[in-house]
């Protein structure tokens, strides 16, 4: 694998993470528990889709085959998508949406803080922009975890259930393969090993404040970075890509 190929894959992966979670959150538009929360979740969705646009646009540029961000978003099949499986998990009830957001944004805060130091100027620029937005996402999710965890008996139980159920998708966040290893050597990619402990600590701090317990480490699901997805991604793509599949090159 050349550095160029690794950089392409890396940008695709990060772009897919943002796009798929952004799409998931966009499904909640007009369906959130109340209007302020509707605005919050769709604002976060917009931030993620904007980031995806920048990252996929950069990937298309690296590939140099005349594609663009839209082409990569709307014309790739499931197996070519490389997002984390956590990001494609269904919204479930509000506790699930928040738990997913809580795990992902805590990870993203640590990840993009490091990526800001990347030797690749494009990735560093996107990261420095993203990190400002992620701070708001992380704060939003953590506040809800505390409010629901330390709330009523019912909200506590639902929040704990969501945290426990989604836990097995978090192991994948810290996996690395030849793409990461090559780019870490070049000073471009982020080493995920030191991030894991920091992430774990942050999650634990918030869960403690929320009177929730940390799930026990057990079996961790994997596959997203290899294009092996849960059944959820197919459903997302069938909706997201419908128009371009039915009417290729449609514009308005």
């Amino acid at each position: 694998m050349t550095k160029q190929e690794a950089l392409y894959k890396y940008s695709i992966r990060l772009g897919d993470d943002a796009l798929i979670l952004g799409h998931r959150l966009s499904e909640l538009c007009s369906r959130s528990p109340f209007i302020e929360e509707d605005l919050a979740l769709t604002n976060i969705s917009l931030d993620l889709i904007g980031r995806a646009q920048a990252l996929l646009g950069f990937a298309a540029e690296i590939e140099g085959k005349g594609k663009d961000a839209d082409f990569l978003a709307y014309r790739r099949p499931e197996i070519e998508y490389q997002n984390h499986l956590l990001n494609e998990q269904p919204n479930g009830d509000f506790a699930f949406t928040i738990a997913r957001q809580f795990f992902v944004s805590a990870f993203e805060f640590l990840f993009y803080s490091e990526l800001e130091k990347s030797k690749d100027a494009n990735l560093a620029a996107i990261a420095s922009k993203a990190i400002k937005e992620i701070k708001y996402h992380q704060q939003h999710a953590a506040e809800w975890v505390i409010r629901l965890g330390d709330g009523t008996e019912k909200s506590h139980a639902k929040m704990q259930h969501a945290i426990d159920e989604l836990w097995m998708w978090t192991g994948e966040l810290f996996e690395m393969d030849e793409v990461e290893n090559l780019l870490i050597k070049e000073g471009i990619g982020v080493d995920l090993v030191p991030l894991k402990a920091a992430w774990y600590n942050q999650i634990q701090t918030i869960l403690t404040e929320a009177t929730l317990s940390m799930p026990e480490d057990g079996y961790m699901q994997t596959g997203g970075r290899k294009g092996v997805h849960t059944e959820n991604l197919g459903h997302i793509l069938s909706e997201m890509q419908y128009l371009q599949r039915a009417y290729p090159d449609a514009t308005w």
Binding site: E36, L39, A40, N43, D47, Y136, Q139
Partner: peptide, 13 residues
């Protein structure tokens, strides 16, 4: 504060 996310991405309510 009512909501940290307002009518546009750059505003809070």
């Amino acid at each position: 504060v009512i909501s940290k996310f307002g009518s546009t991405a750059c505003k809070a309510l």
